[in-house]
């Protein structure tokens, strides 16, 4: 049951401000791909374009899920999620006045996810024991790290085939960043997911990524076909790491 994502020649922006220019990128079945770049280079805009939150002005975004191919451009966000594409947005976007359990149950709103609700819930609690301890606590009253775990778990409750994660490390202490990245790897294996992760923490992201793209000023500046290629690239050192 392979699922993949193919983005071709996408232009997108906000009103008169164009952000993405002719972006092409693909995430193969079962891959973990990192989208690297510093703030303001268009990582989030690309993620939002895939999810239908930002409407691209040109290009195509194809998702292959369980044998069927879907053009995502023109679909509403909720339809895209319903196809089996989960999204963990920047800033987590939890429901602060609902409990941890209620947040997780809302994750399973998608009709296809409802049959597996108990299995997925058990898996989430197993992966994040802290969430089980806090099951009845309001999401808004938890720490940043716990909220990030809940956001990941909630996205998984929709039983996605493809998971998009925007900036999982933002606002977390360094130790938590590496733990979160490890968890993403664990979830990816456990759920047999295809993952696209936007991240500015280069070293952490490359630890679990199979491949990566570097985006600079809304253009794909470098394509690294392996983690080593990314690590050893001069361009990255110069433009991205600033060394």
């Amino acid at each position: 049951m392979a699922s993949s994502l193919t983005i071709s020649h996408v232009d997108a922006g906000y009103g008169a401000v164009s952000v993405l220019h002719d972006v092409s990128l693909n995430v193969g079945a079962g891959e973990t791909v990192a989208l690297l770049g510093t703030n303001g280079n268009g990582k989030s805009t690309l993620m939002k374009s895939i999810m239908g939150i930002v409407r691209p002005s040109a290009g195509s975004i194809l998702a292959e899920i369980e044998g069927a191919t879907h053009q995502l451009i023109g679909l509403e966000t909720e339809q895209i999620v319903d196809l089996g594409i989960g999204f963990v947005p920047e800033g987590r976007r939890l429901f602060p006045k609902l409990t941890v359990t209620e947040n997780l149950l809302l994750g399973a709103f998608r009709p296809k996810a409802r049959s597996a609700i108990h299995r997925n819930m058990d898996f989430c609690f197993e992966t994040f024991p802290r969430l089980k301890e806090r099951a009845r606590q309001l999401a808004g009253s938890m720490s940043g790290g716990e909220q990030q775990m809940l956001a990941l778990a909630r996205a998984l409750m929709s039983a996605p085939r493809i998971l998009l994660i925007d900036e999982p490390s933002v606002g977390l202490a360094p130790l938590l960043v590496s733990r979160t990245i490890d968890k993403i790897k664990e979830l990816k294996v456990g759920f047999d997911l295809t993952v696209l992760m936007a991240e500015q923490n280069f070293t952490q992201a490359v630890r679990i990524a199979d491949r990566g793209y570097v985006i600079v000023h809304g253009k794909i500046a470098f394509t690294g076909d392996s983690a080593e290629a990314l690590n050893n690239n001069d361009l990255i050192r110069e433009f991205y790491l600033g060394t």
Partner: peptide
């Protein structure tokens, strides 16, 4: 409101509409 999928979504809708869309609910 507390036990059904729609009910929980009703409780959530005023809190964050985009987040609700990410739960596949309009």
């Amino acid at each position: 409101l507390s036990r059904s999928f729609i009910g929980r979504a009703i409780q959530a809708v005023a809190q964050d509409q985009l987040a609700l869309r990410l739960m596949a609910a309009s």
